[in-house]
């Protein structure tokens, strides 16, 4: 028996919004530590890694490890039926070929259940090595979303250059060029609004705007985003989900031909 109940059901709604444009299908791997999902987009340019810890749920039970392959478009459709304040419960029997989503309104007066067929997905799983990154940048997630949206008007690619002075986002295209520089916040009153840079070595990398814009669908999950970069390795864009886990996106850089 698998059962995971979340009073803050809107978290699951937001998680689906954060992955459904990038991934068409994915496997939810559940064990007694929680729920993990790892999947690449169709072009194998980026990778999504989601972790929701068991202790972040209001009730969590997983008697046997279970892998549930799901069509994410279908899951998103079902979760759209949940109210923002609803409690969401996911449950499945051992070896089941369906999963059930139960939504309860705050006053318990409306209870809905949606049963969905599971899929047998044979998806490639990648090992992500432990990496010490040369630069980590923490910044407001809404600011990052704005920068990605604004710069993608200028070109398909965005250069992210991090030095100890700050971080510069640039794009160049037919209409011209755009540069956005963010300095490290001098004094941190509210950590959520700060730009904080930790740098061992300066790094400049180029990334496809389209994927960065997909990642920013996770903005509502966290007020802050963390970017981690080292030369010649994938960028990590991490949104922490309060008290329960995180969603990380890995994006391969573009390189000179």
């Amino acid at each position: 028996m698998f059962e995971a109940r979340l009073l803050r059901g809107s978290i699951l709604k937001k998680v689906l919004e954060a992955i459904k444009d990038l991934l068409t299908q994915a496997t939810f791997d559940c064990d007694d530590s929680g729920i993990q999902l790892q999947a690449m987009d169709n072009s194998h340019v980026s990778l999504v890694s989601l972790q929701l810890r068991a202790d972040g749920f209001d009730k969590y039970r997983c008697d046997r490890n279970i892998s549930m392959g799901m069509n994410l478009n279908s899951v998103a459709k079902i979760l759209k039926c949940a109210g923002d304040k609803d409690t969401v419960t996911m449950k499945a029997q051992d070896n089941a070929d369906t999963v059930t989503f139960v939504f309860e309104s705050p006053n318990q007066e409306k209870v809905s259940d949606y049963e969905m067929k599971l899929m047998n997905l044979d998806l490639e799983h990648l090992g992500i090595p432990e990496t010490e990154y040369s630069c980590t940048i923490r910044m407001p997630s809404a600011e990052f979303a704005r920068i990605c949206r604004d710069l993608s008007q200028f070109g398909d690619s965005m250069v992210i250059a991090c030095t100890k002075e700050g971080v510069k986002f640039s794009a160049t295209g037919e209409i011209g060029s755009a540069n956005i520089k963010l300095a490290q916040t001098a004094s941190v009153d509210k950590e959520e609004e700060a730009v904080i840079i930790e740098m061992d070595e300066p790094v400049t990398l180029t990334f496809a705007c389209q994927y960065l814009n997909y990642f920013t669908k996770a903005t509502s999950l966290s007020p802050q985003v963390q970017l981690s970069m080292s030369a010649d390795v994938p960028l990590v864009v991490e949104y922490r989900i309060q008290d329960i886990g995180h969603i990380r996106y890995y994006l391969a850089p573009k390189i000179e031909d």
């Binding site: 990778l47 090595p129 994006l251 573009k254």
Partner: peptide, 13 residues
């Protein structure tokens, strides 16, 4: 510039 795939960096497990 060319776009590398993520599998060029991370290997199958």
């Amino acid at each position: 510039m060319s776009q590398k795939t993520i599998t060029a960096y991370f290997s199958s497990r």
